[in-house]
Design a binder for these strands. Structure first.
Lengths: 338, 338
DNA sequence: AGCCATCGTCGAAGCGCTTCGACGAGTGAT
DNA sequence: ATCACTCGTCGAAGCGCTTCGACGATGGCT
């Protein structure tokens, strides 16, 4: 492996000049620059990352802390990760992948040993223990999610409350008055993942504002979970004409159940799903849905981290506006039936 | 951030002694060790990763190159990644996540700049362009997959040929004589992902050996793809009594189709799936399946990398034996019907 | 008693890069 | 012609760690 000294000799300049060519931090004449670049190319020189980190106090690496359980929301996690890696690369950074399992200790390990310049975390809980730890780090962090006490920490997420409102006002606009919410699984609530709460409160508020009769229920995974969730919803409110489904995993079994029980979508019951676009379109009925913009959120998280790193101003809380796409799972209720 | 010098002063020893306490490479008296450790704890000292990498020529980081497209096999990718990260941590290593999109350039970048000690790649193609590049790196690499020319490079994977044989001989053992293969999507074949080929040739060989009538077809994703795949299979061979499905995405639509066309599983048609356990059990009919042991493969890949790193011997090609788990999607054909 | 190993510790030399201050050579204004 | 800059380059210091050789102190042998 050639070093910067080898390059310097080959180009007939000093090592510092090579460094300045690389970084552009000082003016270098066109001729010198060309010679240096030629030498770099010829020798196949790549600066040693460790040496660089040591001398410059920057690693050009960001940590991504992901929940690598298999249980939850795998495709969404994957989309976040993809977006983060891609965006990071576009800023000439790499991504160190940590599991949420390592908890606070993992964050401190990579931060204290100066392996990363910044951290991006996903799957935050309401009172996430990692937050106080994050505050103590010298590296900035960006959260994908919105825990309760996030003062001074950058947060990026879909505006789930607005998403719930959007879903309801869309349905209300089509004449629906009796609407059920198929929520995430109880374990998501138990884990206090905040998007569940935010969606739920948005849902409840909007249902008051719009004067709707609504009923909500978490939904265990699997066919049995869906069956009992639907049974509960139906028991608590009859004449339900629409469902809002905030539970990717249950979408499929739910459609199966409705089919099996002879409730046609959208003729007998309308559905608005909250899920990634491709999940909505992979169903036998193309679902009208509110997208979870994982790509945008991931990209924005990286962008925010970069701004933080070079001291530019940021908005500490960025909740992306939901967008609803109409497909084939909703129908208008004619005024006579309202 | 305290440095090793601060620790040395606090403990009243030289920096090198601290280093030896940390690394254990030279004997240190119990008393000294205790004082040093106390100083480390008190100051909250964490060695600077860059400095370490520079001085020791080791980063304790391995690269994981994953296909971060959304299109293929997301849960399996995720399981590999999880296993790799977890295993790496157990060897005190971290994981740098790269996308396959970066191609050869990405590998060279992280390798030449000494960001990683070893590389693990997944989703290899038959004549993967990255292999020659890998050979030129000073860091060792481990492949999850089995490209055609892999001499001198460690490979780990499920033995897909054996998996196909296992599936067929299981079905043959239950009296099935006419069997269809629902293969991966054409794009997987086009990409020359080798597991598809290996499974297919295992399938064809075994069908000859066992004297079966078989027919095979790739399967486009989605309901339409499944429909046309089944139509082709039925057209080319009538009286099919069993299907082997080597296509996770199609499992669900396939079951729907069979249901819709009145073919009951397993009464009218038996199914053996090749997919992760949890996919097999998430279906309305619990599927008899051959597991894709992503966790084992990922762990083994890391283990192999570690052996390579400390110069221990390895087996260059490790194909894990398939294991078939019986569930509810197969039935025995009575001799009179054969 | 004398010798050789071994043990435990230290000092110093790097590892490869960035960055700061310095300095000669141009440039424009006076 | 002179001064004051700016431009382009260099040299050296230093980032925080590992590791090699050296060396005094012990201890087990003969």
């Amino acid at each position: 492996m050639p070093t910067i000294n080898d390059v310097a000799k080959a180009a007939g300049v000093s090592p510092s000049t090579v460094s300045y060519v690389l970084s552009g931090r000082r003016p270098i004449s066109a001729g010198t620059r060309a010679r240096v670049q030629a030498a770099i190319a010829e020798l196949g020189f790549h600066p040693h990352a460790g040496a660089r980190a040591l001398a410059s106090a920057k690693t050009n690496v960001i940590a991504l802390v992901a929940p690598l359980r298999v249980d939850v929301n795998v495709p969404v996690i994957m989309q976040f990760a993809t977006a983060v890696v891609t965006a990071a690369r576009s800023y000439n950074h790499d991504v160190l992948l940590l599991t949420k399992d390592e908890g606070t200790a993992g964050l401190e390990r990579v931060a204290h040993s100066t392996m990363v310049d910044a951290l991006i975390l996903m799957d935050l809980e309401r009172d996430d223990l990692r937050i106080p730890a994050l505050r103590r780090l010298k590296q900035p962090s960006v959260l994908i999610g919105l825990p309760s006490d996030h003062t001074g920490i950058a947060c990026v997420d879909l505006d789930f409350a607005a998403a719930a409102r959007t879903a309801l006002s869309y349905l209300a606009g089509s004449g629906h008055r009796r609407i059920g919410l198929v929520g995430p699984s109880p374990s998501v609530y138990k884990r206090q993942t905040t998007y569940a709460d935010r969606f739920l409160s948005g849902f409840l508020e909007a249902s008051v504002d719009l004067g709707l009769r609504t009923v909500t229920h978490p939904c265990e995974p699997g066919a049995e979970g869906v069956r009992s969730c639907m049974a509960d919803l139906d028991a608590e409110l009859d004449g339900i004409t629409a469902l809002v489904v905030h539970n990717e995993e249950s979408l499929r079994p739910l459609l199966d159940l409705l089919h099996a029980t002879g409730r046609r979508v959208p003729e007998d019951i309308s559905i608005v799903a909250v899920c990634p676009r491709d999940v909505a379109t992979a169903m036998p009925v193309q679902l009208t849905s509110i997208d979870i913009p994982a790509h945008d959120v991931g990209t924005l998280a990286v962008e925010t981290a970069m701004r933080l790193l070079d001291g530019r101003s940021i908005e500490y809380t960025r909740l992306l506006a939901p967008s609803l796409v109409e497909r084939d799972s909703c129908r208008e209720i004619s005024p006579s039936h309202r």
